[in-house]
Amino acid sequence: MPGHDAFYDTLPRVDSFAALTDPASYTPLPADWVIGAADIVGSSAEIAAGRYKTVNMVGAAVISAQVNGFGGRDFPYVFGGDGATFACGPDLAVASARTLGVVKRWAASEFGLELRAAQVPVANIRRAGHEVSVARYQASAGVDYGMFSGGGVSWAERQMKLGAFALPPATEDEVPDLTGLSCRWNNARSRNGTILSVVVDPTPAATREAFAAVADQIIALANRLDRGGHPLPPNGPGVSWPPPGLTLDAQVSRGTTPLRRRKLQLLVSNLMAWLLFRTGIRVGGFDPAHYAEMVSRNADFRKFDDGLKMTLDCDPDTVRRMTELLERAQRDGIVEFGLFEQDEAMMTCFVPSPLQDNHVHLVDGASGGYARAAAQIKSLSV
């Protein structure tokens, strides 16, 4: 039997998203693992004030800091727009908690955002009557994403919002390692009518089978759309110069470098990237056409995080059908849901190396999609 630090490495990759509605696709986490969670306090107000890109970037920073802190070791995580959840083994738990504290302090000092953070033992979750199971979804040949089932992650997030298992900010003014985190791509405009942010959670009374049946129907509706409702063009959303979000990108990547100097550095490096993508010229081992194609293939636009989250490029008829389906399921006591429409999708990216195909692209609606859809869900059970 493999050690716990090898647990996630041994899991099979599931290459069908529809198969993730099946509980058999998931494996329970070891009892001595922990769930890490973080979200931005008052994210709805921040988004309403136009800071949706900042909210997304700080949420993605939670993941990026852990990836860099773990030295490239694989672990399951889910991006939620205004935060993230993940799991790690006992050998990484202490370092993970410290990293969350560093990100919490950085979010406050760099952006004036209050980040809630918690670390919840899986054993405590099970004692509360919930399960935490995980699967690995193979989005492309280069990237797979963790998926959660069993209700335990949602319980951990609710406990965090109540103040339980809270982690304090770091006491020293330390900058998190966010190497590879960026937001340099353009937003992607809807080609079918609207970018629809979908958040669907099971009610406490719903059986796993009943929720799976509803999720199957939602996924089937999405699969009728062009490319399954993928919100990004096949060759990526494109780049421009000067890049959008230059100041935000500089704040995230500057470390201890003065902001003005970092912005100038990014202007130069992004000009070079823009020229390569515009001309298609290969430099060394970098093929801009292949990279742009992999951006779309690697996009994390649908996920299971105890419930179903999707960012879809939808036509009006699909929006109507999905709304009717979810309203019926809500009346039947199976789900609670939120839908939010906007014109564009946006990405926040984590690129360990532009020469490999393992770059990660976290997708959300460009007007605060997941957070605004989740805000429509009124009933939260503890």
Rank of each mutant, 00 (worst) to 15 (best):
Y77V: 05
E327I: 00
M310Y: 11
P121H: 06
L326S: 02
F350M: 14
Y370Q: 06
A48G: 15
G69K: 07
T27S: 14
G72K: 06
N223A: 15
A139P: 03
A128Q: 08
F148W: 05
G238Q: 05
R105D: 12
H230P: 04
G307R: 09
D364T: 02
T171S: 13
P242Y: 01
M57A: 09
G59I: 00
V351A: 03
I334D: 01
R51W: 08
D74R: 15
L20M: 10
K263T: 09
H230K: 13
P233L: 11
V14L: 08
I218E: 10
D201A: 11
V120K: 00
F111E: 05
P169L: 06
Q356G: 03
V120C: 12
V200W: 01
G369K: 06
A128N: 07
E46Q: 15
S269F: 07
A366W: 00
R302T: 03
S182G: 11
R254W: 04
V67Q: 13
D91C: 02
L167F: 03
A164Q: 08
Y52S: 12
G151D: 05
P233N: 05
R184K: 13
M346G: 15
V58Q: 04
D357I: 06
T194W: 06
A87N: 08
V382Y: 07
E157D: 14
L339W: 04
P12D: 13
A292V: 02
H361E: 11
S43G: 08
L100F: 15
A220K: 10
H230D: 11
T85F: 11
V319Q: 12
G368I: 00
G307V: 06
A188N: 09
T256N: 12
R136Q: 13
T323M: 06
L308I: 07
V283A: 11
L221C: 12
S140L: 10
F211M: 03
I125D: 07
L339K: 08
I377S: 08
N192G: 00
Y137E: 13
G81I: 02
S64K: 02
G151N: 05
A24K: 12
G285P: 08
L29K: 06
D74W: 12
V199M: 15
L264Q: 10
H290V: 12
A374E: 09
L181K: 00
R126N: 02
D226H: 14
A6P: 00
A212W: 05
K161T: 02
P202D: 03
